[in-house]
């Protein structure tokens, strides 16, 4: 029995966001511009998808100031790591032919 797909994570850009954040060591966060460059997204696009992931409880956004410059740091939550791992497991099951393609 394979786990269920995660419709929030499966969207292509959100999948890239989650993969990037999941690659960070525990306790670490990535600044918004660096995340944008890593996944090659635009400001607006990334902001919208981060909101969706934040509402799902998968990522955490921390806003502060570095000197006078506003800074946004993004990190993955424990629930986000768990959901990402389950989604990857689901994808692997599909590729291996053990998962249900239609749900």
């Amino acid at each position: 029995m394979s786990p269920d797909p995660d419709e929030i994570i499966h969207q292509q850009l959100r999948l890239k966001i989650m993969a990037t954040l999941n690659a960070l060591p525990p306790r670490d966060a990535i600044e918004f511009p660096r995340l944008k460059a890593t996944i090659e997204a635009t400001d607006g696009n990334l902001g919208a998808h981060l909101s969706t992931l934040e509402q799902a409880g998968y990522v955490s956004l921390e806003k502060d100031f570095e000197g006078k410059k506003p800074r946004t740091r993004v990190s993955i939550t424990r629930a986000g790591r768990r959901a990402f791992a389950q989604h990857v497991e689901y994808l692997r099951a599909i590729i291996d032919g053990n998962g249900a393609a239609d749900r």
Partner: peptide, 26 residues
């Protein structure tokens, strides 16, 4: 939600590329 084996493979490749890029930039 319907995901074909090909879509699943593409998604896994996207994940690998994103993680690789994160590793390089880090």
């Amino acid at each position: 939600m319907s995901i074909s084996p090909q879509q699943a493979t593409e998604a896994m490749l996207d994940i690998e590329r994103a993680q690789r890029r994160a590793f390089v930039l880090r």
